[in-house]
């Protein structure tokens, strides 16, 4: 399990960083989303990888065997904030495109 998750995180990081360094704003926004997936999964993974033990308290559940709720709470807020930043960045992207007429990250067209 862990190995697959780590490879997935690695691949998503690679794609995210690659896209982040591209000149088009759209690529950057997609790259950021991708990076946030990777980071969220990473933080989530810090709590250990367990199946079938969601942190829901029942009457006959041993608390120590449950999955770690702290990273989950952190990631939950991270997801929502990620949504907010994506929205913000999208609008900045659109505004910059409207002002400069290009979708290059520098707002100045391509460099040769």
């Amino acid at each position: 399990m862990e190995i697959i998750l780590s490879i997935a995180i690695g691949v998503m990081t690679t794609c995210g960083v690659w896209l982040l360094l591209r000149p088009r704003t759209y690529q950057v926004i997609v790259g950021l989303s991708m990076l946030s997936y990777a980071v969220n999964l990473f933080i989530f993974g810090v709590g250990g990888v367990k199946t079938n033990v969601p942190p829901l308290l029942g009457d006959d559940v041993v608390t120590s065997s449950l999955a770690d709720p702290v990273p989950q709470a952190l990631v939950l807020t991270a997801i929502v904030i990620g949504f907010a930043t994506t929205a913000l960045f999208l609008v900045v992207l659109l505004a910059s495109r409207g002002l400069t007429g290009t979708d290059h990250v520098d707002g100045r067209g391509d460099r040769k």
């Binding site: 690679t14 960083v17 810090v46």
Partner: peptide, 27 residues
């Protein structure tokens, strides 16, 4: 650069996940 970052993340993530989780505030 991207690949280096990705590979690094893979190793770190794997190491972190396979480490025994310390008894932290979760309990």
């Amino acid at each position: 650069l991207a690949i280096v970052c990705g590979v690094g993340m893979t190793f770190v993530a794997y190491a972190v996940m396979t480490m025994p989780v310390p008894d932290a505030i979760a309990t």
